[in-house]
Design a protein around this nucleic acid. Structure first.
Lengths: 341, 341
DNA sequence: TGTTAGCACTCACTTCCCTCGAGTGCTAAC
DNA sequence: GTTAGCACTCGAGGGAAGTGAGTGCTAACA
C-alpha cells in the first residue's frame, strides 16, 4: 500500500483524533479549524472526498461528516499516531497502585488488570503467567479424599498452579508422598510437557506396578497446566461509549467477554508478539467486529511469560492505550522479576 | 399488618403476575379478563383504587395502569404467590447439566452458577463452601521461593483452599515440611479459627525458637481461609430487561456486580437462613434499590456450608426463581455429599 | 494548478401539533 | 355491592415544518 501524501495524512489524523474524542462524524470546518494547516474547509473537503474514495473515510449519510474506516485506524496505528507518552500523573498513578510488596503472583495480576481498566476506561484482561514455558521445581501431591489429590506444581520462577487430580483409591498417603518425591526428582529442571514421555520409562522401571497410575496422574496434571486463566476487569466500562448504548449490542459484547474464551484465545495467540493491535473485523469473530483489542506481552527472567490487553470500541484511544500498556508491561515484568527471583 | 381480603389478594396477584411478565402498567380491563373472577373492570377499578391507597400499587401517571410497589412484592412473596413447581423439562435440564461425575468442588460450583443463571436468565452467584465451619484434616506447606510457601488446607469434608503465605527465609524445605506435619498433627479434627489459640502454646513448647514464625504463618492461613470466594455468572442478563435499557442504570448495576463485594456480603449474611428474599430497598444499598436478591443455603454432612442466589430486577419471577433455587440447592447438596463423603 | 468563496442541495434532528387509545375516577342506575 | 356510561387525562405515535451542519460543484483567484 503506497502511503498517502503528508497533507492527507495530517487531515486523516485530525479526523481520527477528533472522532476518537467525540464519536461524532467530523466535518470539513472542524478539521480546518483543528488542524492548524491554514487550509479552508473547501480544500479540506476535496481531500476528504479523495480519502473517502481511497477507503479511509466513510459517510453515514450525504450531509453528515466523515468517520474513519477500519483501514484508517490501521494506517493511524501503523504510521500516523503520535505515540503518546504517559503524563507524569499517569505514571504516578501506576506507581501508586501497583503494590510492589504483594507476594503472590495472582494478586499482582489482579491489581494490574484493575489498574489497566481504571486508567483506560476500557475492558482489561491479563493472562496469568504460562507455566508451559517454565521449568518444574517441585510437584507436590496432597491427598484430599479417597481417590482425589491436589497437585501443586511449583516452577523455577516461583509461579504455581494447582489441580485436583484423580488417584487410585488404593494409594496410602505415604504412597502419594513417595510418588510426589519421585516425580519431583525426575522432572526437576525440565518442562512438564517435554519431559513426561522421556521420564515415564525410568519411572516405570523404578515402581513397576504403579507406573500406569502415575502416568495418568501426570497426564491430568499436564492437562490442567495447559489451561490458561485470564483475569478480566471493567467489562461494564463499555457502557460508557455511545456506540454501545444499544442494549442488544452491549449485551452481545458483555456475553462474549463473560465467556472469556475469545479473549483468552486472542491473548494466547498474541503471546509471541511484543505488541499487537486487532481492529474490528481483524478479530475473526463477528461478535467483536466493532471492537479493537490491543495486547502486549510481559516477561520474567528475560522470557515472555504472559500477555495482557485491552478491549474497547474500534474508536479507541490507541495512542494512550499503547503507552499505558507498554509502561504497565515493564512495570509488571519488573515486579514479577523481583517476586520470582 | 392485617391481610387484605381474599378478593383484593387475588386482584393483586393478577396484577403482579401480569406485570412480572410484561413490565407494563396493568389496567383494570386486563385484570378483569385475566383473573377469572367474573368482575367488571369498574369493580376492579374500585379495588385497585383501594390497593393504591393502601400502598400496594403505584401509578406512573394518571391515565396509566398500576404497577406493584415493593410492599406488594413483599406480600406476594410471603402470602400470595403460587409456590411454583418446576416443570419436568426444567428438572430435566438441571439433571442433564449438573454433571455428577465432576470431582472437584470448584468445578461443581461453577456449573451450578451457570445452570442457575441459564435457567432463570438473571445474574446468579454461588458462594464456594465456607471452610470456617469445617474441621481441618491436613495442612500442607509447599516451599515456593525463599520466603514464600503455599499453604493448602484440606478439611474433613474434602473441601480445600490454598493461600500464599510468607515464611522466614531461613527455613529449609525440610523445616517447612516438619512444621506442616506438626501443625497438621495439632490441628487435625479442629476448626482452624477455634483451635489456633489453644494449640499455639503446645507448639511453642515443642519448637521454641520457630514458634513466632509458625504463629504468623497460622495467622496468614486463617486470614485467607476467611476470605470468601463467590462465583458470579450471567451479569449481562440484566440487559434483557427493559428497566435496564438505560445505559447508565445498567452500568451502575454491572459495576456493583463486578465488584462483587455487596453480593458477597448478602450471601454470607444469608448463610443461616434456608431461603431469603430481599426486595428493592430492603437491600441496604442504594445501587441495588431496583433489584431483588433471592438466596438459598446448601448443605453437606447435614450442615449449611454455603449459599447461592440470584439477582434481578424487583419485577422478578419469584415463584420460578424460588422453585429453581430450592431444587438446585438440594441437587448441589447431594452432589457435594457424595463428592466429599 | 492548487486554493478558495459562493451557493444550492441534502438530510438527520428537533419541535410543535395533532390524533389515538388505554386507562382512570365519578355518577347514576340496577 | 356491582356495573354501565361518560368525561377526562396523558403518554405514545406520527406527520409537517424549520434548523443547521455538512456536502459537492462551479467559478474565480493567486
Amino acid at each position: 500500500m503506497s502511503l498517502l501524501d503528508i497533507r492527507k495524512m495530517r487531515i486523516l489524523q485530525a479526523i481520527v483524533d477528533d472522532y476518537i474524542m467525540t464519536a461524532a462524524p467530523v466535518g470539513s470546518r472542524t478539521v480546518s479549524k483543528r488542524s492548524d494547516m491554514g487550509l479552508s474547509p473547501a480544500t479540506i473537503r476535496n481531500e476528504m472526498s479523495d480519502l473517502t474514495e481511497l477507503g479511509f473515510l466513510e459517510q453515514p449519510h450525504t450531509s453528515a461528516g466523515r468517520i474513519p474506516s477500519e483501514k484508517a485506524y490501521r494506517l493511524y496505528v501503523n504510521h500516523i499516531m503520535d505515540s503518546a507518552k504517559l503524563t507524569d500523573d499517569e505514571a504516578d498513578y501506576i506507581k501508586r497502585h501497583l503494590d510492589t510488596r504483594v507476594h503472590e503472583v495472582g494478586e499482582v495480576i489482579r491489581q494490574t488488570a484493575k489498574v489497566l481498566s481504571d486508567m483506560t476506561n476500557y475492558t482489561s484482561m491479563v493472562l496469568v503467567p504460562q507455566l508451559s514455558s517454565m521449568k518444574i521445581k517441585r510437584i507436590s501431591l496432597i491427598p484430599v479424599s479417597d481417590g482425589t489429590a491436589m497437585a501443586v506444581v511449583v516452577t523455577n520462577t516461583g509461579v504455581t498452579k494447582n489441580a485436583m487430580i484423580r488417584i487410585p483409591e488404593s494409594l496410602s498417603p505415604d504412597d502419594v508422598e513417595k510418588i510426589a518425591k519421585l516425580i519431583t526428582a525426575k522432572l526437576d529442571g525440565h518442562r512438564l510437557n517435554e519431559a513426561i514421555e522421556s521420564v515415564l520409562p525410568t519411572i516405570r522401571a523404578e515402581i513397576g506396578e504403579q507406573a500406569d497410575a502415575v502416568s495418568e496422574m501426570l497426564e491430568d496434571i499436564e492437562k490442567s497446566m495447559n489451561e490458561t486463566d485470564v483475569e478480566v476487569v471493567g467489562a461494564s466500562n463499555i457502557l460508557d461509549y455511545p456506540e454501545y448504548s444499544d442494549a442488544a449490542k452491549a449485551r452481545q459484547f458483555l456475553a462474549e467477554v463473560e465467556s472469556g474464551s475469545y479473549l483468552q484465545k486472542v491473548l494466547t495467540d498474541a503471546s509471541d508478539v511484543e505488541m499487537s493491535v486487532r481492529i474490528g473485523t481483524e478479530n475473526d469473530n463477528p461478535d467483536m467486529k466493532d471492537c479493537s483489542v490491543v495486547t502486549v506481552t510481559y516477561k520474567a527472567g528475560g522470557k515472555n511469560i504472559g500477555t495482557m490487553g485491552v478491549v474497547g470500541p474500534t474508536r479507541m484511544d490507541y495512542g494512550k492505550v499503547m503507552a499505558i500498556l507498554k509502561y504497565l508491561s515493564s512495570s509488571l515484568s519488573d515486579i514479577l522479576n523481583k517476586l520470582l527471583k
